[in-house]
Simulated assay, not measured.
Amino acid sequence: MLDARAAIVTVGRWLDGKGWAPATSGNYSMRLDNGNFAVTVSGRHKGRLTENDIMSVDADGRSLDGKKPSAETALHLALYSSFPDVGAVLHSHSPAAVGLTRAFPGAYGYLLAGHEMLKALPGVTTHETEVTIPIVDNSQDMAEIEAAITPRLLAAGAPPAYLIRGHGLYGWGRDMVEAERVIEAIEWMIAAELAEMGFREGSGR
Rank of each mutant, 00 (worst) to 15 (best):
A120M: 01
A120K: 11
A120I: 00
A120R: 08
L121Q: 08
P122C: 01
P122G: 04
P122V: 00
G123C: 05
G123E: 09
V124G: 00
V124S: 03
T125D: 00
T125G: 02
T125F: 01
T125H: 04
H127I: 09
H127F: 14
H127S: 06
E128I: 04
E128D: 09
E128L: 15
T129N: 10
V131Q: 02
V131G: 03
T132C: 08
T132V: 09
T132D: 10
I133D: 14
I133P: 01
I133E: 08
P134N: 05
P134H: 06
I135C: 07
I135Y: 01
V136D: 03
V136A: 02
D137V: 02
N138Q: 05
N138S: 09
Q140A: 15
Q140T: 13
D141E: 05
D141R: 06
D141Y: 13
M142F: 00
A143M: 12
A143R: 07
I145E: 05
I145F: 10
I145S: 06
E146G: 07
A147W: 07
A147K: 02
I149Q: 08
I149A: 04
I149V: 14
I149D: 02
I149L: 13
T150F: 03
T150R: 13
T150L: 15
T150D: 04
P151H: 09
P151R: 07
P151E: 13
P151G: 14
R152N: 06
R152H: 06
L153G: 11
L153R: 10
L153T: 12
L154I: 07
L154S: 13
L154H: 13
L154N: 11
A155R: 09
A155C: 08
G157I: 02
G157H: 14
G157A: 04
G157M: 07
A158V: 04
P159A: 06
P159L: 03
P160Q: 10
A161N: 12
Y162D: 00
L163A: 10
L163E: 03
I164T: 01
I164V: 15
I164D: 08
R165N: 14
G166L: 05
H167M: 08
H167S: 15
H167Y: 11
G168H: 05
L169W: 10
Y170L: 15
Y170G: 14
G171A: 08
W172A: 06
R174S: 11
R174W: 14
R174K: 11
R174M: 11
R174D: 01
D175N: 10
V177E: 10
V177T: 09
A179W: 12
A179L: 05
E180V: 14
E180D: 07
E180M: 13
R181Y: 06
R181S: 04
R181Q: 13
V182L: 02
V182A: 01
E184M: 14
A185N: 03
I186E: 04
I186H: 12
E187R: 01
E187F: 07
E187M: 04
